[in-house]
Amino acid sequence: MKTSLFAATVIAASIATLASCKKNNDAPQYARAEAFWDANKVPTQSFTGNAASGFSIIGEKGTKVKFPANAFVDGNGNIVSGTVTVTLKEVLSKKDVLLSGVMTESNGQLLESGGEMLIKALKDGKDLQVNPALGDTGIKVEVPKVMNNKDMGLFVQQKRDQGQGGAGGGGQQPQNPTTWIPAPYYPFGNGPNSYSFTLPGFTWVNCDRFYSDPNPKTTVTVLPAFQDNNQVTDLQVILVFKNISTVITFPFNYSIQKFESYQNSLPIGSQAHLVLIGKDSDGFIQFGTQSITISANQHIDAPIHKATQAEVDAFLGSIQ
């Protein structure tokens, strides 16, 4: 049987195309940093309602917020009427905490979270405030107990106190300039299925408590061990605890040129995932993770490398 030159050419081209496709399919699909963060950031949900009569909203993860009549005032303290826009971010898992950047610590002390959220209100593109005249009868929030079911209290976000928790001492630079503090005067309800409270303001709030562990506390240092010859920026060193709903970052200590936990803040014997994540000069995710058991005065040389999307997704799926 004879094969024409044309047919042979077509067959050869087909084989080359299949080989090329196989080669491309086998190539690692590295994660682009910008696309990764866009796809995984905690979404901002948007609602509208009538400010004069009041209205309620329910978030995608079950957070309920009830706005009574005349709940909003503008920047001059005037009661707002008409249609307002309310936005909501729900942080109700350790994965959400990691991806939101709003970690569970208070001036260097560990917090155990039952859920965080950011509620804001706007009219005509301008930020509104909670009507202070409403007091305890103001905006009511219910947070489902999907992240935790322990007794909690209400915390609010504020600028970090540089004089506490080692946040500004010893050359440490906090990863986040804000921290959590207890809300001193807002009643808090621990129901069978939800936490409930009156919203103190349009800011980040947290159903939280200080984590108590009888074990001795220690300080841990981390030094990234880069596997690729590439400059890495926006680098974060994160600790995701396995048995409690706690996620923290390690500030960078310039005096020792290492990432370092807050002094004597980590319970010896606790188990956690150590996570390093950053962006290289080509725009790809640099990533590394390992399971650790915290020991006294521990130092970790932590590998970090250009990671595939599947690798990062697999880790995120394991810390729900």
Rank of each mutant, 00 (worst) to 15 (best):
S196A: 11
F210I: 14
V237I: 15
A71V: 07
Q45S: 07
D161I: 07
Q164K: 13
D280N: 12
T308K: 06
P224L: 04
D26V: 12
N176E: 06
N229S: 13
T137F: 15
N190E: 11
A16M: 10
S4K: 06
N70Y: 10
Q175A: 07
A314Q: 13
V73G: 08
N25S: 05
F287C: 00
L134Q: 01
I58A: 09
K126H: 15
F197T: 03
N78D: 14
I256C: 03
V80S: 02
W204S: 03
A33C: 00
V222G: 04
L316I: 02
L274A: 05
V220L: 07
F197V: 02
L99D: 07
F155W: 12
D280Y: 05
L92V: 05
A12G: 13
H299A: 14
G169Q: 13
D234Q: 08
V312Y: 12
L5P: 13
D136Q: 15
S81W: 08
F241C: 01
V102N: 09
L239Q: 11
I139K: 09
G59H: 09
L154N: 05
P177N: 01
F226V: 12
V65L: 01
T178A: 00
K145I: 02
K95I: 06
K89L: 02
S100W: 05
V247S: 02
F6K: 09
V97N: 03
I15G: 03
S261E: 11
N24V: 12
